[in-house]
Each structure stands twice: as structure tokens, then as C-alpha cells.
Computed example of a mutant assay.
Amino acid sequence: MPLTFTLDPSVDRALRDGILDLWADVTDAGGAVGFVAPASREAIRPELVKQFVAMAEGRSRLLVGRDEAGRVAATAFLTLNRDALSAHWLWLYTVMVHPRHQGKGYGRELLAAAADAARGLGGIEALRLSCRGGQGLERFYASCGYKEVGRIPGATRVAPDDDRDEVIMLMPLT
């Protein structure tokens, strides 16, 4: 059953808790979403608050996918550029699908919904995201229409003696 996506949902306790649970579960399953397992909700909360502040300031938009039970199952933050010279593209951050839903095509649905949402904003010509190297994410994003446009070797240290590349990917919307 497909997810139901909402752009700019009302932020309430249930949504906040659902995103915190999702973020912790994705991290603990090995997902590359800013933390290393194990990640507590308390460790993640400040980062989520930063995203909510960016939303309140109009710098970011939240896309949420809910499963058939109404649970938060996927997210992406569409973050606008403050620089007028880069206003024609935006970043996708915290792109997540709950581990219980992986392998069902929901990642592709999430990325397609993000592209549709970006097109609906007007004037957005491309989406950019970065992903952690060494996990095969580049191949997944490439299969969804993204192209690698940059790589910063060893930019992410997930553990002592375990540095990963940051891979920058772009997808034109036009």
C-alpha cells in the first residue's frame, strides 16, 4: 500500500514524536541521517528543533509520508537557499524511510513526492542532496534520476579510522 504524503503538515506532539521515532529507528538500523547508532531521541531532538525553526522562518519545508496506520513512515526536509544566486535549486535533508517499510519502493515514492513538491514551489529547477559514501546510496539515488556532481573524501567520520566520503547529488527538475 503506498504512503500518503503531506507537504507542510501541522506540527504537533504526535508529528514531532513520530519523526523522532523514525529518525532514531533509521539511525539504529544503520541509516546515514546525521548520527551513528545507537541514537537516542534526546540526542536527535536538537537537530529536529533546528529543522522546525527553519520551517518557522520559511527556510525549510517538511514532507511527511504516513503509512496505512497513519504513522510517520518517511520524511524529507526541502531547504531553500538563502543566497539569491542559488534560489533556483534546493537541498533535500534528512531523507528517511522507516526500516519496516524499506524494500517496498517507498524511497522512490518519497523522492518523487519531494520533486513534485519542489516543482509546486515555483522557480525550483533542481534538487540537491548529499549522502554518506560506502553504503551504496549513490546507486539508489542515481536510479531515481540523481547524478553525482561532487565528492568530499573523508568528510564524515563515523568512527575512529572510519571516514566516509560525502557525495553530492543533483537532479534537474526541468
Score class of each variant (00 low, 15 high):
R45A: 15
R45V: 00
R45E: 15
R45D: 15
E47S: 14
E47A: 14
L48P: 14
V49M: 04
V49P: 01
K50T: 15
F52R: 14
M55R: 15
M55C: 11
G58A: 06
R59N: 12
R59L: 13
S60K: 13
S60D: 15
R61M: 08
R61L: 12
L62N: 07
L63R: 11
R66A: 14
R66H: 10
R66F: 05
D67N: 14
A69K: 15
A69Q: 15
R71N: 11
R71F: 01
V72R: 03
T75W: 02
A76R: 06
A76Q: 02
A76L: 03
L78F: 03
T79D: 04
T79Q: 06
T79Y: 00
L80V: 03
L80T: 00
L80C: 02
N81R: 14
N81A: 10
R82E: 08
D83N: 15
D83H: 07
D83M: 05
D83I: 02
S86K: 04
A87I: 10
H88K: 10
H88V: 01
W89M: 05
W89A: 13
W89Y: 14
W89R: 15
L90W: 00
W91M: 10
L92R: 01
L92C: 05
Y93I: 06
Y93A: 14
Y93N: 14
T94D: 07
T94V: 05
T94S: 10
T94H: 07
V95H: 00
V97C: 05
H98K: 03
P99Y: 00
P99H: 02
R100G: 10
Q102A: 10
Q102V: 13
Q102M: 13
Q102K: 11
G103P: 05
G103W: 01
G103A: 09
K104T: 11
G105V: 13
G105E: 09
Y106P: 08
Y106E: 11
Y106I: 08
G107L: 06
A113W: 01
A115F: 03
D116E: 13
A117C: 04
A117L: 04
A118K: 13
A118T: 11
A118D: 08
G120E: 04
G120I: 08
G122D: 10
G123K: 08
I124A: 09
I124S: 06
A126S: 13
L127G: 12
L127I: 12
L127W: 01
R128Y: 01
L129P: 12
S130G: 14
S130I: 13
S130L: 07
C131S: 13
C131F: 00
Q135A: 12
G136F: 03
G136Q: 03
L137V: 15
L137M: 08
E138P: 05
R139H: 07
Y141E: 09
Y141Q: 06
A142S: 13
S143H: 06
C144S: 11
Y146G: 09
K147H: 07
K147E: 14
E148A: 08
E148G: 04
V149L: 02
V149G: 00
V149H: 04
G150D: 02
R151F: 03
R151K: 12
I152V: 15
I152W: 00
P153I: 05
P153Y: 00
P153N: 05
G154T: 11
T156V: 13
T156Q: 12
R157I: 13
R157T: 07
